[in-house]
């Protein structure tokens, strides 16, 4: 007996297709290759962050510190390179900071058993504060001359496609391979599905948690490099923004439940595409920023409401603590 059921992923796909078709028909200048590439380029960084978050969420966690690990390690690299240190040292220092930060997150969650929401809320605050207080004198650190060779990751094109889209694709393939081809990926799903059972089955749950948070921190740092190369500087003030909420929405909107164990890279791609299409169309229409947010909010709300109506949860099957 196969019962047809609309999943969240399909609902969002349908909304995306409708939106895309509607904009293509009604909005001149939307459906041309150049604009579509721009659309993708504009959401590439959000998408990369979403992929990092997806790994965490599938393992039943959440990482609110991603914006901090996007901004601070990159700014450190830029500053070191600018101050005349060797570029290799600068890059290694940035990546090391990021990895160390991810490991600290993982350790606190796995060994100190503090809920991930609190750990990453606090650790993001800590890293941002560290950057402000001890590493950088101003909020914006400029992309320095010695790192020019690296700026290709955020600027320029390869085979007619902007490099940031290539990076996004690369990360997507890597995360997909991790989740579906590696044992660690299978472990991640089983941990998200039932952490207790995973532990009893002999999966090194604690080590896996650390691996996941290190990977999300490194992915965020990579996104940071792409962003800094793209605009020519890294503003640590970005930590103050509500960007992390957009990242969570992209992930969850695509159909990766916050209760863990479900979802794949496809979900992130669909979520990212929907947001990208929406924002691109509204920008073309010269809709003001607050109204864009308002429309974005209602589309997101419609998506999760449709999911709830079509896949209702009830009191008997609800998971405790699943907020």
């Amino acid at each position: 007996m196969h019962r047809f059921q609309l999943s969240q992923q399909m609902i969002v796909s349908v909304i995306f297709v409708l939106l895309f078709a509607g904009l293509s028909l009604l909005l001149p200048g939307f459906a041309n290759t150049e604009n579509l590439l721009t659309l993708l380029q504009n959401v590439a960084i959000l998408g990369i962050l979403g992929l990092g978050m997806a790994v965490i969420v599938i393992g039943r966690g959440v990482d609110l510190s991603m914006i901090a690990s996007l901004a601070i390690p990159v700014a450190l690299t830029l500053q070191l390179a600018d101050a005349g240190h060797s570029t290799a040292l600068a890059i290694i220092a940035g990546l090391a900071l990021s990895a160390l930060f991810g490991a600290a997150n993982g350790w606190l969650i796995a060994y100190a058993e503090v809920p991930p929401l609190f750990v990453t809320l606090a650790s993001g605050l800590f890293l941002a504060g560290l950057g402000q207080a001890f590493l950088f004198s101003t909020e914006a650190v400029v992309w320095p001359e010695p790192l020019q060779f690296l700026s290709a990751i955020g600027r320029g094109r390869l085979a007619g496609i902007p490099n940031s889209i290539w990076i996004f694709a690369l990360v997507a393939v890597a995360v997909h391979a991790f989740l579906s081809r590696l044992t660690a990926g299978v472990f991640t799903y089983s941990m998200g599905d039932n952490p207790m059972a995973a532990r009893l089955a002999g999966i090194p749950v604690r080590i896996m948690v650390i691996v996941q948070y290190v990977s999300s921190a490194l992915i965020a740092t990579l996104a940071g490099f792409v962003m800094a190369a793209s605009v020519g500087s890294m503003s640590t003030r970005i930590y103050n923004s509500t960007w992390i909420y957009d990242v969570i929405l992209v992930v969850v909107l695509g159909g990766i439940g916050l209760s863990g164990g479900r979802g794949s890279v496809t979900n992130v791609l669909i979520g990212t595409l929907l947001i990208g299409t929406l924002l691109n169309g509204l920008t073309i229409l010269d809709v003001s920023f607050p109204v864009q947010n308002l429309i974005k909010g209602f589309v997101l709300l419609a998506a999760i409401m449709a999911d709830t109506v079509l896949n209702p949860r009830n009191e008997e099957t609800a998971q405790q603590g699943d907020i």
Binding site: L294, F298, L300, T308, P312
Partner: peptide
């Protein structure tokens, strides 16, 4: 009543209410 998830729902209403405020 509609049994939406609290975390996501209030995340979205955060965006909506803020947009309303700015407008």
């Amino acid at each position: 009543y509609l049994r939406l998830r609290a975390f996501l729902t209030t995340l979205i209403t955060l965006i909506i209410f803020r947009a309303v405020y700015e407008i």
